[in-house]
Amino acid sequence: MNWYTVYVTFLILFLPSVIVSQTDDPPVITVTGDNYFCPNGSNSIAVVDTVSITDTDDTELEEVSIQIATGYQNGQDILVLSGVHPNISSTWDVTEGRLKLTGPATLSEFEAAILAVNFSSTSPIVTGIREFSVVIGSPLFLPETGHYYQFVPSLGIRWDDARDEAVLRTFFGLQGYLATLTSAIEATFAGDQITGTGWIGASDDPTAEGVWTWVTGPEAGLVFWNGDETGTVVPGEFEFWNNNEPNDYPDDAIDGQENYAHITDDTVGIQNSWNDLPIGGGGGRYAAQGYIVEYGGMPGDPALQISGVTRVRVSCNVITNRQRTYRVGF
């Protein structure tokens, strides 16, 4: 038997097992919870009824996030970890409406901590639904799209550099890309609950001046807006331009001055809306603060179960008899 035959035999017999042993399988999480709740400013309710976390090749996790993904009332709604969890710390982010649970800790320790997370609210608006996304890892999850989102701070980054960096990011095998915000709920989520304004994946540079296109992600090549600030949205598509945008500032009679979309700073015009900027961004309130990466929907993405969604239906009814007044959740 010559050396080549020996080498090939080794590859056939042993290499597959080496490759399999190096595979890191993603964890799986399952949660349940759909309850009614009448908050009074001092009571609370668990956001998860049951939880199961499994992982075929790991016994610990680093981080789990629980976020009020839908219906969040900033400054009034809150999530709190109750009880004692020696290996897990919690951090509440009021802007994101998210409670981070940080380890490392065992899967069972994280399960116990998730069950101990409670929701309360002092909001005077005591109706509506709160959806809670429970995610293994740090990106945020939006139930309505099934996608994950992450703000990457990078002061002064160019749009093209942000685009190139985004595609180098992955999340449990999901391919990253500059976010494509194709609905009102997605635009509100990205603007309200992802900390920091930043670049998104729209431009009128690859087509023609004033033909605004999503150039990243699953929507790459999709035109959604034609014209300048007096233009029109493509039927069936979505836009959220700020007042008098996109205006190709300082002179929209000169093509090519502002060709890249950016979420507007909160102090400028309409909250969470978009404006067009040069590829390097602007100055002051128009300086690029970073970019938003979206994960999900790309060809070849793996099927994952790294998140789950529960709901609390916030509702109160006042019933009065001659002796007492009752607040009843229903």
Rank of each mutant, 00 (worst) to 15 (best):
W3P: 00
V6G: 08
Y7M: 12
V8F: 09
T9V: 02
I12N: 12
I12E: 14
L13D: 03
L15E: 07
T23Y: 15
T23H: 15
D24R: 14
V31H: 01
T32Q: 03
N35P: 05
N40M: 04
S42L: 12
I53W: 13
D57P: 04
I68A: 14
N74V: 12
Q76P: 00
D77L: 06
V80W: 06
G83K: 02
S89F: 01
S89H: 04
T91P: 00
T91E: 09
W92L: 11
D93P: 10
E96D: 05
A105C: 07
L107H: 14
S108T: 14
A113M: 13
I114C: 05
V117E: 02
F119T: 05
T127E: 10
F132V: 11
S133F: 01
S133N: 03
V134K: 02
V135Y: 00
S138L: 07
L140D: 11
L140Y: 08
F141P: 04
E144D: 02
G146M: 04
Y149L: 04
P153W: 03
L155W: 02
L155A: 13
G156H: 04
R158M: 08
W159G: 02
D164E: 10
V167F: 08
L168P: 01
L174F: 14
Q175I: 11
Q175V: 11
L178K: 04
L178G: 04
E186P: 05
A190T: 12
A190S: 13
A190F: 13
I200H: 10
D204E: 07
D205A: 14
E209V: 08
G210A: 09
G210H: 10
G210D: 06
G210P: 08
T213W: 07
G217K: 12
P218T: 09
P218H: 09
F224K: 01
F224R: 01
G231V: 04
T232G: 09
V234S: 08
P235T: 11
P246M: 08
D251I: 09
A253N: 15
Q257S: 12
N259T: 13
A261Q: 06
A261V: 14
H262I: 06
I263C: 03
I263G: 02
D266R: 10
T267F: 02
V268M: 06
Q271R: 03
P278M: 08
G280W: 11
A287I: 06
Q289D: 10
I292E: 03
V293T: 08
E294W: 09
M298V: 10
I306L: 08
S307G: 05
G308L: 05
T310C: 07
V318P: 00
I319F: 09
T320W: 00
R322T: 15
R322S: 15
V328K: 12
G329H: 15
